[in-house]
Design a protein around this nucleic acid. Structure first.
Lengths: 220, 220
DNA sequence: CTGGATTGTGATTCCTGGTTCACTCGTGGC
DNA sequence: GCCACGAGTGAACCAGGAATCACAATCCAG
């Protein structure tokens, strides 16, 4: 009755595949937390749930994270970092404002599709974080947003400062709408449509030139 | 040391203003819950907080609601109903698809600005509800969305079904972006910009005609 | 004026879920 | 092969917060 690893993965001691000691357990925990939290909300999932989904028991998670919120923080930190890196790579690359802006849009779409669940969690749970972490993340978020505004600004001279920010928020909001419902569209088509709508929000024609490749340019 | 009503409001027995028995206590509780939850997240606010903000003690809330989640449900039900009523009034009114669509956009913007906090709570907390309530609300949400799709469809013959839904989601996402940051813009200007961007997402020129007035047409 | 229903209070209960702990087991270095 | 250490386990602990209860104050009928 005991010792039978219940869940899928069946990370059994002897069974095929990974041994009881999983070197990437930490990753699996993060993935599990992201997955569960995006569906049911972070506070409704217990350590037991997260552990189970990651192939261990609830208390075992504490071998990898100090607390439950530490998991959340790690998760959100990571996705925010990913956005920043993308933006950094874009802005460091060649091209004019138009090209840069379009590249920013495309990179955000990429993250929204690839890291869908984590980004959804971010959007819903930042404000539940303890003061300090929240501040830090919000600051990063503001920087990221500022990158967009800075590039958009010369293209939309008709907009005041606050209006530029609103436009950027709206564009990102449009992109992230895909986080909250399953369109069922093929990823390419999805990306294409989001791209068009984000640009429409910004009031800027998309740069036809694919622009600087944001892919792993400045990351590694 | 006891019996001194600690909190602000000082809803004291004799003091000026409202008596200890507030006829609209229920409303104040809902308002308080919306306010607090929109800032700190629903699960991080306690019954004590809600009560305090509403001028009573935590346990007193149970005179008006059966449980904590009952408050949330009442809140979300209400905002969803408001959206529906608006859409119903719009569609019942005169005008072609263009006019209807623009009116839908404007009504959603109105709700997003007026009921800002409740809508924000909705967006973040629907999926934490118990199965049954969640289903019900999601169904209503789908109906509402369907209203938009139905009107948009003839205007965007180039889009497939799933693509129409995506566009609507994106437009609403753009509008609701205003829920999550303080633009500081004047409400009229804010509404104007959101209107433009939502239409841009939908790929439809806004109807210049103000269209049918959604205001309290079919509500009372 | 009086009795009953309603609203509000403070203390108490109770339980969920995060966290800790003592212990076991597998692994990797010597 | 042996030892030390890190990963995983199950039981126990514990706090915080939702919910309950007995009681007081208020309002409204009749």
């Amino acid at each position: 009755m005991p010792t039978v690893p219940t869940t899928a993965a069946a990370a059994g001691t002897t069974a095929g595949g990974r041994s009881r000691r999983d070197p990437e357990r930490r990753e699996r925990i993060l993935a599990a937390a992201a997955q569960l939290a995006s569906r049911r909300g972070f506070h409704t999932v217990g350590m037991a749930d997260i552990g189970a989904e990651a192939g261990i028991v609830g208390s075992g998670v504490y071998r990898h994270f100090d607390s439950k919120t530490a998991i959340l923080v790690a998760l959100l930190d990571r996705v925010m970092a990913r956005l920043q890196e993308g933006a950094g790579a874009v802005l460091a690359g060649p091209g004019d404002e138009r090209a840069h802006l379009s590249a920013l849009v495309r990179d955000h779409i990429r993250v929204a599709i690839e890291d869908r669940s984590v980004l959804a969690v971010y959007h819903r749970e930042v404000h539940t974080l303890p003061e300090e972490d929240r501040r830090r993340l919000r600051r990063l978020q503001r920087h990221y947003l500022e990158d967009w505004v800075h590039v958009l600004s010369p293209l939309r001279r008709d907009l005041a400062d606050g209006e530029l920010r609103l436009a950027v928020h709206a564009a990102i909001g449009a992109i992230q709408s895909t986080l909250f419902f399953r369109s069922g569209l093929a990823p390419e088509r999805l990306a294409e449509l989001l791209d068009g709508m984000a640009h429409a929000c910004l009031g800027v024609e998309p740069a036809t030139d694919p622009g600087p490749e944001p892919a792993d340019a400045a990351i590694e």
